[in-house]
Amino acid sequence: MTSIARTAPDSARQRSRASRLLRRLPWWIAALLLAGGCFLWIYPFLWTIGASLKTAPEIFSDGLDVIPKSPVWVNYGRAWNDAHFGEYLRNTVIVTVATVIIVVVRSAMAGYVLGRYRFRGRRVVLVVLVATLLVPTGYTIIPVVDIAQRLHLLNSLTGMVIALSGGAHVALTLLYMGYFRRIPTELFESAQLDGAGFLTTFFRIMLPLATPVTASATLLTFLNTWNAFFLPLVFTFSRPDLRTVSVGMLAFSGEYSTDWPGMAAGAAISLAPVIILFFVLQRYFVEGIAGAVKN
């Protein structure tokens, strides 16, 4: 290949481009098919954006049309000012960021020791974690409120963060556990030879290695916290100024009617950060650990 390329560069380059195109062809076909599927996939999302710029009669007379006749920006004004979405968005961001950090760190730590160490009580912890994994929990809010009140956690964002990070997915711990268990033992040994202690090994070597898991865990916790409803509701009964976006969404529904355009606008506002985060985090799924191991 190289010698030919040196002697007859033009024809070879053409040939290789053609063959590369040929090799890539199945991928482009797949891409085309996916593109079609994706339109169907994101349709309800597009509809939401469209609806946020329509009037109420337009939403229901147009059925599935996405494009508004003339954009009604007032809907956003209503969501932002009347429904206090600006304020709520700030609260939601604070709560979500804090919760995500706590949950990710605590899950990684627990997953690390459960995955790497054998110790007395490990099995008990594991059994409890797995046993509670599949219990329906929607109705356990009453004891949660009960204990939050006894610990004086109500009516503060701090309390909300603590409760939310306590109720987060146990599965994340298991995810980290599975990941750390599969990291070659030599890595630990070499770290120990370098004189790294327990904490250094974890924070400097292991946690960076687990970047793809951390990315997933961040996203999942982000989603759950962002959309959490009952806990933020309870924690802000006496402090409406601390409400989060998902609680604020209630302002759009009345006894017999719902302000659909306002709700769509609210939904669009609250969706934006989620989508941005996803777009950013994607990089970590792509880069993966290959680079991290080398460093």
């Binding site: 605590r106 730590m109 509670t132 603590i162």
Partner: peptide, 17 residues
């Protein structure tokens, strides 16, 4: 390392169940 999970999870998930 287990403490945060044991405490938070215990209080807000296991106890309610």
């Amino acid at each position: 390392f287990l403490a945060p999970t044991v405490v938070l999870y215990g209080v807000f998930t296991v106890y309610p169940i």
